[in-house]
């Protein structure tokens, strides 16, 4: 795939910290994302892979400028070469820079799906565009008039993607687009993101599912504890020796197709072992 296109998003040394009150009046700073750098070019899908709590969603929220009020952000964000400050964010957010959120809870429960895709617009042109996009994703007119609680998991996903596509974006940030879908439906959703990238936009895919990420992405950034510990071409994951970090190697080995029945190979370093013990209880 063509990855030499123009850089759309550049994240430079991004840090997100939370200030929390611990016991008593003791204040505690939690560094949720630290020193994270990455780029996304046009026609490219970059996957950010990490376990829960690794700061993936915060990365998405930081780029969209929707971090909670008690979060402090540091570092630089560049969108198409321009500093992504409040001013530029107001211009591009929801138009050239769009988010595909995680779940049905991101839809207004009392608003029909079609109206949410058009962002409340009711004019003929928006509605036609909405119908075109929905039918492209195999959703009929009936789905348009449904309320979020009536949508199935797969329909919800396609509606959420439609909210992004209707805007003709340059960059799509997909925050965990597949949980709750069976593998077949998840793969179909991933195809939609591939189409978006083919159309010229950049896609930042945030997921915990390495297998799915490798299926879709050109490059993979592995996140651990808020830090990017490795960035590699997706192809590198088929050959472990091309990976540098022990955690990534372990991740790679943990995929079903690379699984060694003896299980010994997982214990390369004590650090990973300790981590795996902590995380999975064995």
């Amino acid at each position: 795939m063509d990855t030499s296109g123009k850089v759309i998003l550049e994240v430079r040394k991004l840090s997100v910290a939370f200030e929390q009150y611990g016991r008593g009046l003791k204040r505690k700073v939690i560094h949720a994302v630290e020193d994270l750098s990455l780029t996304v070019s046009e026609r490219e899908i970059v996957a950010v892979v990490g376990s829960s709590g690794s700061g993936k969603s915060l990365l998405a929220h930081a780029i969209m400028g929707i971090l909670p009020y008690n979060a402090a952000m540091n570092g630089e964000l560049l969108f198409e070469g321009r500093m992504l400050d409040g001013e530029l964010l107001r211009q591009v957010r929801g138009k050239e820079l769009v988010l595909v959120p995680q779940s049905v809870s991101y839809l207004d429960p009392l608003m029909k799906a079609g109206r949410q895709v058009t962002k409340g617009r009711k004019d003929e042109e928006s509605r036609k565009r909405c119908r075109d996009i929905l039918s492209r994703y195999g959703l009929d007119k009936e789905a348009e008039g449904k309320y979020p609680f009536q949508l199935s998991g797969g329909m919800t996903r396609r509606i959420l993607i439609s909210t992004a596509v209707i805007e003709q974006p340059r960059l799509v940030i997909a925050d965990e687009p597949t949980p709750g879908l069976h593998p077949e439906a998840a793969r179909r959703v991933m195809e939609h993101f591939k189409e978006i990238a083919k159309g010229g936009a950049g896609v930042l895919l945030i997921t915990h599912d390495l297998e799915l990420a490798l299926l879709t992405a050109d490059r993979v950034v592995v996140l651990y504890g808020g830090r990017a510990i490795e960035e590699a071409q997706a192809a590198a994951f088929s050959d472990e020796s091309q990976l540098k970090h022990p955690y990534t190697k372990a991740l790679c080995r943990s995929m079903p197709q690379n699984w060694d029945p003896s299980g010994d190979r997982l214990c390369v370093s004590g650090e990973i072992l300790a981590y795996m013990r902590k995380e999975y209880g064995r």
């Binding site: 969209m64 769009v98 959120p101 991101y106 839809l107 207004d108 962002k119």
Partner: peptide, 13 residues
């Protein structure tokens, strides 16, 4: 504080 208002903000509303 709901997710759908957060998403509306992200959509530039």
């Amino acid at each position: 504080e709901s997710d759908y208002v957060l998403f509306s903000r992200a959509r530039g509303e």
